[in-house]
């Protein structure tokens, strides 16, 4: 235990260090405060906001930031499974994203995973309280900006990394008759798969 908490010597290459998880570090060491994350994310949004001309451009920027994170998260989670499995069927992959990945990133599974009735290639991952917009209120003149675009970028990165290219967009949907939780909006991540993905999935199943 002492050996683990000792400062990492530089002679150890980053690839030779343990990747954590599975009890090699205690849970308390694997968290920072939610406020620290929110402050950091707020700075990221502000940084991009100063460098773009339109709301949709801002969302694209946040998505691009999340995309790289998604790729890395997928890799990290895959390495932590015992047998390095990768999901090959569409439903299993979506389940992986909305439960396994969601739990490890946000501490809980996504609130629901839905299939679009109108379009066979569209799925929706719904979260009532995503951490990227917990402390955010979007001004009225920001025309439906969804600051959860960062998460949609991450979903896109994870799906793409696993061989399921898809267009993922984040939408804030107003909730009517709110009972619980006390929020006015929920985040809906709309996943639209490329035609090739559906074709392959039809072959496989």
């Amino acid at each position: 235990m002492n050996r683990l908490s000792a400062p990492t010597s530089i002679s150890v290459n980053i690839l030779d260090r343990p990747i954590g998880g599975r009890g090699s570090r205690s849970t308390s060491e694997q968290t920072v405060s939610l406020s620290m994350f929110s402050y950091l994310y707020s700075e990221i949004v502000q940084y991009h906001q100063n460098r773009v001309d339109s709301i949709s451009e801002l969302e694209r920027k946040l998505e691009a930031t999340g995309y790289g994170v998604g790729l890395r998260v997928l890799e990290l989670l895959t390495f932590r499974t015992k047998d390095y499995t990768r999901e090959t069927s569409l439903m299993n992959m979506l389940q992986f994203v909305s439960t396994t990945a969601w739990k490890s990133l946000f501490g809980k599974a996504a609130d629901s995973l839905e299939r679009s009735i109108d379009h066979a290639d569209e799925y929706m991952i719904v979260d009532y309280a995503p951490i990227t917009s917990t402390f955010v209120s979007v001004p009225a003149d920001f025309g439906g900006l969804s600051v959860d675009a960062y998460i949609s970028g991450m979903i896109g990165g994870m799906l793409d990394g696993a061989g399921f290219p898809a267009r993922v967009t984040a939408h804030s949907v107003a909730l009517e008759d709110v009972v619980l939780p006390p929020r006015k909006e929920k985040a809906v991540f709309l996943v639209k798969f490329a035609a090739s993905v559906l074709e392959r999935d039809a072959h496989l199943s």
Partner: peptide, 20 residues
């Protein structure tokens, strides 16, 4: 007492920012 966020998500988010 602090609400928590995943440290890996935090580290990766910061890394994405620095890369940007």
């Amino acid at each position: 007492k602090q609400p928590k966020a995943n440290a890996e998500l935090f580290a990766l988010t910061y890394g994405a920012l620095v890369a940007e």
